[in-house]
Design a protein around this nucleic acid. Structure first.
Length: 551
DNA sequence: TCTGCCACTTA
DNA sequence: ATAAGTGGCAG
């Protein structure tokens, strides 16, 4: 399979928050920025540049020389990290439905360190956290077997992409419209996941500058992973505590908030009774009283220090990996999947950040314990920004260009419709996920790497070592219409301003060989939103979506 | 387990 | 007003 490089410089790793056990995955989200949808299609094929070699572990400052693209200076702070942590401590569950379900908490990040004039594409993907299938019994999660083959990995390109650094930095980037589905034949471009499997969202920032455009040899990119965003996909909530957290925090679930009598009456009404009934939640909770199954052992371990910033991901010199990598992101996997899940695992309370230098964050990384205890202690740091999105999406046509960034204007008005694009990629796992943040670059297989079946899960996958040379294969995007969104602020956002600790982890770039696996893909043109899916092996497939206008 | 429908809420 | 996001529940 693929090689993996290992980190060249261990030093570089920065510890961020703890790593999770989960694999990492990241995907970009940006709601705030979301704009309306648009479609753009583009194919991208590009090669990644190697990031500069990581230099400093810690700060970005040093990065410049080694990091011509400045990818290492990019810092990403998870918005509303405290909320994510609350869920993570219990064992986050995300509902997946045939029609597609949004994530809650919503994945929003504050991105800093971008060159104001350089164009970037922000995208997310969600990779398997490990290769196990879980069950929830006795009020706790446990492994029941081996994971099913990964589905086609899809990428969700933030609707505002490509946009310049000033745009992305202006407000929170929200991936609010990203939806999760259990329909392997999903035609909407939603991210396809398997129920009762653990996943790790990952955010990728790809430089889409003309000078470094897609299509060209190297494309710098960096990947940020926030361990606290790991979750288990479910068709219905398993842990009552999660249900309660969702109800208490998601505005759309306000109707289920029991406070008061209202609830009793409501319940009674539902039950057709005249008299108040004890709120279900109450009942359930009692039943479930047990502590959360997930102990965050692992996760908890991840600990996030304060906020989670994943500043460095890029820093490592490599910052960037190729987009492909993204696509095929290696599964990261931590050794311990969830903390909760697996007992023996190491606690990740610490986060470490490594630089990508090494690329690998292999499990070995685990070694580095994160330091932080995971408390949520830190105040929120996140961001403070949020914002309306209003970028116009680029015209649909533009999008085709291979280069994402290049073509269009940044959020111009057209964007109204930008949409996120999905790419199908291989599914990487996070095995190594431990790393906190890192960026990687890896050689891409050619654009189309042959498809490989889903790589077996390896605890310590090898990573490709050299950051350089990675190239992206093409990413094709297509536009998809709908994704863009604006995001209102969340009620949840917290602001954090503090210095950030970065908690996120960067993912190693390994190259995975795994290209996208094939999958039945949905047809590109379908429905309303069109998304691009990219197969790895196929190379780009971008279907061009048309955008039908749907939004 | 998963799906469809329900009542409720936000946008 | 409509459209769409929520969890609960019955099947």
């Amino acid at each position: 399979m693929k090689t993996q490089a290992r980190p060249a410089n261990p030093d570089k790793w920065v510890m961020a928050n703890g790593g999770d056990q989960f694999g990492l995955a990241d995907r970009p989200n940006s709601d705030c920025l979301d704009s309306p949808k648009e479609n753009k299609q583009e194919n991208l094929s590009f090669t990644l540049k190697p990031a500069a070699s990581p230099q400093t572990v810690s700060s970005q400052v040093a990065a410049s020389a080694a990091d011509p693209d400045g990818m290492e200076r990019i810092k990403v702070i998870l918005h509303d990290r405290e909320l994510w942590t609350k869920f993570d401590e219990v064992g986050t569950e995300m509902i997946i439905t045939k029609a597609g379900r949004r994530m809650f908490p919503c994945y929003k990040v504050k991105v800093t360190g971008l060159n104001p004039k350089t164009k970037y594409i922000l995208l997310m993907d969600i990779v398997p956290g490990d290769d196990h299938r879980y069950k929830f019994a006795d009020n706790k999660w446990s492994v029941t077997g081996k994971a099913e083959p990964a589905m086609p990995g899809r990428l969700y390109v933030h609707p505002d992409s490509p946009a310049n650094g000033a745009h992305w930095s202006r407000q929170l980037v929200s991936f609010q419209k990203l939806k999760l589905t259990n329909n392997h034949l999903d035609p909407f471009g939603h991210i396809i996941l398997n129920s009762m499997h653990k996943y790790q969202p990952r955010l990728h920032i790809v430089k889409a500058d003309e000078n470094n455009g897609f299509g060209s040899k190297n494309t710098a990119f960096c990947t940020h992973v926030f361990p606290e965003t790991t979750f288990i996909a479910v068709t219905s909530y398993q842990n009552h505590k999660i249900t309660q957290l969702k109800i208490e925090n998601n505005p759309f679930a306000k109707g289920f908030r029991g406070s008061d009598d209202n609830e009793l009456h409501r319940m009674a009404k539902l039950q057709g009774k005249d008299y108040p009934v004890v709120p279900r939640s109450t009942v359930r909770q009692k039943a479930c009283s047990a502590g959360s199954p997930f102990s965050r052992d692992t996760r908890g371990l991840q600990g996030s220090p304060d906020d989670v910033v994943s500043p460095f991901s890029c820093e490592s010199g490599l910052n960037c990996g190729s987009p492909q990598e993204l696509l095929s992101a290696p599964p990261v996997h931590y050794t311990h999947p969830h903390p909760h899940l697996q007992p023996g695992q190491q606690p990740q309370g610490y986060s470490y950040s490594k630089r990508k230098a090494e690329e690998n964050c292999s499990p070995r990384n685990h070694q580095h314990p994160y330091k932080k205890p995971f408390t949520g202690g830190s105040p929120s740091e996140e961001d403070s920004y949020y914002h309306p999105s209003s970028y116009p999406p680029p015209p649909p046509g533009l999008s085709n260009l291979p280069t994402l960034g290049l073509t269009d204007s940044p959020y111009s008005s057209d964007m109204g419709q930008r949409q996120a694009c999905m790419f199908a990629g291989s599914e990487p796992r996070i095995d190594e996920f431990n790393c906190t943040s890192w960026s990687y670059t890896r050689p891409l297989p050619t654009a189309m790497t042959p498809v490989e079946p889903y790589p077996p899960y390896t605890p310590h996958p090898p990573y490709s070592s050299s950051p350089q040379g990675s190239r992206l294969s093409a990413l094709a995007h297509q536009s998809s219409p709908s994704l863009g969104e604006h995001i209102p602020h969340d009620p949840y956002q917290s602001q954090s301003s503090g210095p950030r600790s970065q908690s996120f982890q960067s993912v190693p770039s390994r190259q995975l060989g795994s290209p996208l696996r094939e999958y039945p893909r949905y047809k590109p043109n379908l429905s309303p939103p069109l998304y691009h899916t990219l197969d790895t092996h196929t190379h780009i497939r971008c279907g061009v979506p048309e955008w039908s206008g749907a939004s």
